[in-house]
């Protein structure tokens, strides 16, 4: 009922806005464009490095991600139907050269999923995160089909929490309803919190504060996962990404991932 009201209000608001005239919209948009300041600071570009030679394949990152991001535990029905949601997953051991690899969203610089979304529910944010605004998602699953890494998940049914108790959820991450697509956000809520506190305390954000920021990186016992600003040449993550051991998944897809793997070539 509530959602219906919201939808109706949105539709009416949209119609009213259209009726208000294209002219008003155009002028306002142009004014906004001219008023935009030149970026005084270099844009950040969040990225991640996963060192496969350090990784112990303990899957702690998978569990940490589930906990942090309010991903409902896999029920018996979903398990039987193989409908899991794992923003951070393990590529199964196979004949390929990448065996048992932890694989989050690659946060491509040229993400195919963003291009195909019919309603702009997924987009690349200015700091390089491929984000999903599930409130706008219509559940067409085109992005899932378009992703070469299969790193997007659809909510096949309403999420259920153990004992139907949602009070144990992380309040910083909104649980997703049935019928929408969801994905890894690089723990954007944590980045958000760190940035806001740094600004409130008028401190500079150091690379040390960022390195283990996402839940997966924080939980990793061998510190195989490093997070940070790829555009900052002094950051740990940029230093590792420049290593001769650095490789990217499916380079032939032309997506230019910002999640980079380190591996000794044999």
């Amino acid at each position: 009922m509530k959602r219906d009201d919201d939808l109706r209000r949105k539709l009416l608001a949209g119609l009213a806005a259209s009726a208000a005239g294209a002219l008003a919209g155009c002028t306002r948009a142009m004014a906004a464009k001219s008023a935009e300041p030149a970026p005084s600071r270099r844009r950040r570009k969040w990225g991640m490095v996963i060192d496969l030679d350090r990784c112990a394949r303990c899957a702690g990152c998978v569990v940490a991600c589930q906990q942090e991001n309010n991903i409902p535990p896999l029920g018996a029905q979903a398990a039987a139907r193989t409908r899991p949601i794992h923003w951070m997953d393990f590529l199964p051991p196979a004949s390929g050269s990448f065996t048992a690899t932890p694989i989050p969203c690659m946060h491509c610089e040229d993400p195919p999923c963003v291009k195909v979304c019919p309603v702009g529910a997924t987009y690349q944010n200015p700091e390089g995160i491929t984000a999903q605004v599930w409130e706008r998602c219509i559940g067409c699953r085109y992005c899932i089909v378009a992703c070469p890494y299969s790193r997007r998940y659809f909510n096949w049914s309403e999420p259920r929490w153990p004992g139907d108790d949602p009070s144990s959820l992380n309040p910083d991450v909104a649980p997703r309803p049935r019928g929408v697509v969801e994905k890894c956000t690089l723990c954007h809520h944590r980045i958000h919190a760190v940035l806001e506190h740094a600004r409130l305390d008028e401190e500079l954000l150091t690379d040390e504060a960022l390195r283990r920021l996402p839940a997966c990186a924080e939980s990793c016992p061998t510190q195989a996962i490093t997070f940070g600003d790829l555009a900052d040449p002094d950051s740990e993550v940029a230093r590792l990404a420049a290593s001769p051991r650095a490789v990217r998944l499916l380079p032939e897809a032309g997506t230019r991932p910002k999640v980079i793997y380190l591996r000794e070539t044999k």
Binding site: I138, G139, G179
Partner: peptide, 11 residues
């Protein structure tokens, strides 16, 4: 579609 009603509004 996962959310046909949302689609009729959002599209």
């Amino acid at each position: 579609l996962g959310r046909p009603m949302a689609a009729l509004v959002n599209l």
